[in-house]
Design a binder for these strands. Sequence first.
RNA 1: GGCGCUAUCGUCUAGUGGACUAGGACGCCAGGUUUUCAUCCUGGAAACAGGGGUUCAAUUCCCCUUGGCGCUACCA
Length: 428
Amino acid sequence: MIKTRIAPSPTGKFHIGTARTALINYIFARQNKGHFLLRMEDTDKERNQIKYEEDIKNGLKWLGLNWDGEIIYQSQKTDRYQSIVNQLIKQNSAYQKDGAVWFKVPENNKIEFNDLVRGKIEFKTEDLKDFVILRSDKSPIFYLSGVVDDNDTGITHIIRGEEHLSNTPKQILIIKALGWKLPIYAHLPLILNSDRSKMSKRKDPVSISKDFKKNGYLPEALVNYLFLLGFHPQEKFKVNDIYSTTEMFDIFYISRVQKGGAIFDLEKLNSINHHYIQQIPDDKLVQKLEKYQGDIDSNIFVRFISIIKPRLRYFEEIKAELCWLVNSVDYHTNQLIFKKSNKNITIKALGLISQSITKSESIEVDSISKLLQSVVIENSLSNGDVYWSVRVALSGLEKSPPPEELIWVLGKKESLKRINLAIEKLNN
RNA sequence: GGCGCUAUCGUCUAGUGGACUAGGACGCCAGGUUUUCAUCCUGGAAACAGGGGUUCAAUUCCCCUUGGCGCUACCA
């Protein structure tokens, strides 16, 4: 049976690159009816933290990348590593120096392996130096622990980031010294910054929990985007870059994975996320966004969400829209006047609108829309005279949803209050 | 420096020697959707890093150069 794994070290928050590697391992295992394992490479005692382990586990679950079986902790396998090291020393493949144990790299050897995404890779042992496999504190280096655990858990395919390509010959040397079976390797291209450097915690959004989940990205959008970073399906399977996980199992071929690094593009992610947000039914979306509700009346909040939805690329963008709902509007009086209009016409338009809203029984979007239209026609005004000024009076913004929607959300009383305030301002 | 990997529009990519006037998506620009922004629709600009080969023919195969990235830790 095919077995893959993701082996993060809990020395930092769940990283976007780890998530992508996990996704590919997950897809590959699932499409082959195999298992996907999770292993914590917690051998670095100085930098490990339990909160990072939690962040990684939560992140994987959130993305829907559920692992099979129990989590393997390298910190609990010290005896196993020690005995392997003893064996290596005994057979003269390793030696002790400065309290640590070093692996002895054999001379004049060629190490070849066939990488599933890169093809044939070749290293010469003369370019390799002896390396530490067991620290002086008896904890293993990942060259060793990774090999031992992959063997013990029967991992058949090692799919990991390209940064491990140069580490592979060292691990193969250990495997060969132990007489174990070689796994199949696949090295994924790296995810890069816009300047082609490595994504950095300081400048770039890399944390699944802190940068993506918290800002209101949907797991299915993130998975969809990550799937397309370094991979595209065959022409016949292409459907405008939107794929569900089930489709991924059908159309993913590991040999089609790109070899060059891929730049992370937030705009594309935003666009995909926008797409998925539009698929959420209004009532579900309200639930998802409840943390933004604050003191807002539930009925008003529901209306607010329904008009905001089409412009939401990620949840946190709601904050900008919340301004006109929650706060009293603040704008320059001149902003009320449409660029092709003037002060007197604007006062007149706002006055007429105020009157007809007062008289109107309904504030449904359709009714208000007709109301606005008839004010325009019956008084020979232009659209801009009416729509622009009403919109600014209600939102205080030059860019906002249309006036009939604002009125529907704000309610009759608040809308009239704001429109009348605008008239007052213009008259002063 | 050494070793390894890598190179199609701004970005992610399709393309596996002739079907390529190089396709799609995001972004950008223009027009439309009878006010703004967004959504939506239509259209547009935009790329095979450079140089050698191989071949009747090269984006596609080979070599070199250049650029990018990774490893070269008692990090993973």
